[in-house]
């Protein structure tokens, strides 16, 4: 069941991205930035966690989850240390996506040659 909903919800989020790109003529970079900000707002309103409960990876794999986990890390730290925690806790939960991108980026640059 969760597999089905992961597929559907993930697909719908990508369709929204496609509409932003085709209908509103946003570049991919603008689309992704919009999505991350939107994910952060949704988590601020407490709406993103229910979506993760419902769709699993359908909600955690799209880039919106990046905004969600940034807010999440910040809020968790803020509960312990107050406002300064907002600054220090930001990457607590998100780090894996960025560190994985950096590590595999460098490894990729070592392994592969640019094409054409």
């Amino acid at each position: 069941m969760i597999f089905f909903w992961a597929f559907v919800v993930g697909g719908i989020i990508c369709v929204i991205g496609q509409i932003l790109m085709d209908v509103f003529k946003l570049t991919p970079a603008h689309t992704l930035t919009t999505f991350v900000v939107f994910g952060a707002i949704l988590d601020g309103l407490g709406l993103y966690e229910p979506l993760i409960d419902f769709a699993g990876a359908g909600a955690t794999v799209p880039i919106t989850s990046f905004g969600n986990s940034l807010v999440h890390g910040a809020m968790a730290e803020a509960e312990e240390h107050g406002l300064i925690g907002v600054v220090t806790g930001m990457f607590e939960v998100t780090s894996s996506g960025i560190s994985a991108a950096i590590i595999f980026g460098v490894i990729g640059a070592l392994l592969f040659k640019p094409k054409g």
Binding site: F3, A6, F7, V8, C14, A57, G58, T60, P62
Partner: peptide, 14 residues
């Protein structure tokens, strides 16, 4: 976009 995006999320779920 729906099918490719959905498929990537499905792989993620697996």
């Amino acid at each position: 976009a729906f099918f490719v995006g959905g498929l990537i999320c499905l792989i993620g779920q697996v």
